[in-house]
């Protein structure tokens, strides 16, 4: 059995190098809808993929969080990208693969992946 004691070693290694994330205007918030509708349509793998990719790439300016139902259940899983001074971008019908694409194009390079946005979809 793996034991929590390993966390002591992680703490020692990380002592001093932990930077508290400054909540400034450069901070990008990525919000995944995790209500019943989101979960039923596959939001969990989208959320875990985004969280893991952000950790892996060490994107200090990106925070992945969750929210409830935003009332567009038929377009779940929904991922919103909120960035200071910019319009909110709503990505719909996400999958882990699409989420990685959004992360690489939008979160890293600043290019909105239009084809997955709510605006591009004829409602």
């Amino acid at each position: 059995m793996k034991s929590l004691e390993e966390l002591k070693a992680i703490r020692e290694r990380m002592q001093g190098q932990v930077e508290f994330r400054a909540e400034n205007s450069d901070q990008i918030r990525v919000v995944v809808g995790m209500a019943t509708c989101g979960i039923a349509s596959g939001a969990r793998p989208v959320l875990t993929t985004l969280a893991e990719e952000v950790q892996k790439r060490d994107l200090k300016n990106v925070t992945v969080t969750q929210t409830g139902c935003i009332g567009l259940c038929q377009y779940e899983p929904i991922v919103e990208v909120l960035e200071g001074g910019k319009d909110k971008i709503t990505y719909i019908k996400m999958t882990p693969e699409k989420a990685v694409e959004v992360l690489e194009q939008h979160l890293v390079r600043g290019q909105v992946v239009e084809k997955y946005t709510l605006n591009e979809t004829r409602l």
């Binding site: 703490r11 990380m14 932990v18």
Partner: peptide
């Protein structure tokens, strides 16, 4: 055990 090391950090 972790003090203020966040759970969301890569290693944790």
């Amino acid at each position: 055990l972790l003090g203020d090391v966040p759970f969301a950090s890569r290693e944790v």
